[in-house]
Simulated scan of single mutants.
Amino acid sequence: MTAPSQLSHPLRSQRLNAITHEPHSRLDQLVKSHDPFASPERFAHFVAAQYLFQRDLQALYSDPELTRLIADLPQRCRVEQARLDLADLQRDLPQGDERIRGQAMGTGEALAWLFVSEGSKLGAAFLLKRMPALGLSETFGARHLAEPEGGRAQGWKAFTAVLDSIELDAEQERQAEVAAIAAFERFTEHLERCFA
């Protein structure tokens, strides 16, 4: 079996995308199995998972070192939008743990977690199209799916440009790859818990 860092993709963003293909596909199937778009009540479970994941990453989005690399990073965080969505949906905030929030991460690891969060904004465009049927929108109940300022594609391009430009040694690359997979696993854990 080929080690993740030996994949034949020249850019880090492409390598992370390739090695997370399987956990990403599993997560997509899990989301579909829970049918979060069947009703506002079911969608609230999905939003609760989003809130917990964004809460995990809240400190990364305001980290001074990372903000030096990505100036608009604090504005990219969606924890507040998810919190407001849960209020719209009349659901209490779920209680999260500190396992990820309290974890010290190197730059490569942190960017890999953010890679998963930022990448989800691309798919959010398709989810937002399903919101009118639930009586929800980017201003009520589905704020966390709203298009970022400057557009989804431009925001992703700017983020991956930074991700791909940072120099990491072989161990840091390995840690980034492990972190990207861990991020998908963490969201999966939140989703299973919120739909339980």
Rank of each mutant, 00 (worst) to 15 (best):
Q14K: 15
L136N: 02
K121W: 12
L60K: 05
L89T: 00
P40I: 07
F195K: 05
S13C: 12
M131N: 08
F187H: 09
R55S: 15
F37D: 05
I181W: 09
I19L: 15
R55E: 15
A183T: 08
S13M: 07
M1E: 13
R101Q: 14
Q90C: 12
H190W: 11
H34V: 02
F195L: 04
L127M: 15
E109T: 01
E189H: 14
L168K: 01
L66F: 06
R42Q: 12
A125E: 15
D28P: 08
P10S: 08
S33Y: 03
V47E: 06
E147N: 05
R186I: 09
L145M: 14
K129I: 00
R186E: 11
D56T: 03
A142Y: 01
L69T: 03
H190F: 07
V47P: 07
E118P: 11
Q154M: 09
L134P: 10
S25W: 04
S33I: 02
G135H: 05
P74S: 10
P132R: 11
A182G: 10
A176C: 09
L128F: 01
D92L: 07
T160C: 08
R193F: 13
L16N: 03
K32M: 11
A18T: 10
S39M: 06
R76E: 04
S13V: 05
S137W: 02
A38E: 09
E22Q: 15
K121M: 14
D169S: 02
D35A: 14
S62Y: 09
Q29F: 08
L114G: 02
E192F: 00
K32I: 09
L168H: 11
G119W: 04
H190K: 03
A146F: 07
H144Q: 05
R12V: 09
D164Y: 12
L11E: 06
L60T: 07
G106H: 07
T160Q: 05
I19D: 13
D97N: 14
M105I: 10
S25M: 13
L52C: 03
G96I: 06
D164W: 11
A59D: 15
E138F: 02
V47G: 05
Y61T: 04
P10D: 07
H34S: 00
A112M: 04
Y51G: 03
P132W: 06
L145T: 11
L73V: 08
G119S: 05
F115G: 00
R12L: 14
P74K: 07
R130L: 15
E189V: 02
Q172V: 09
S120Y: 04
Q175I: 00
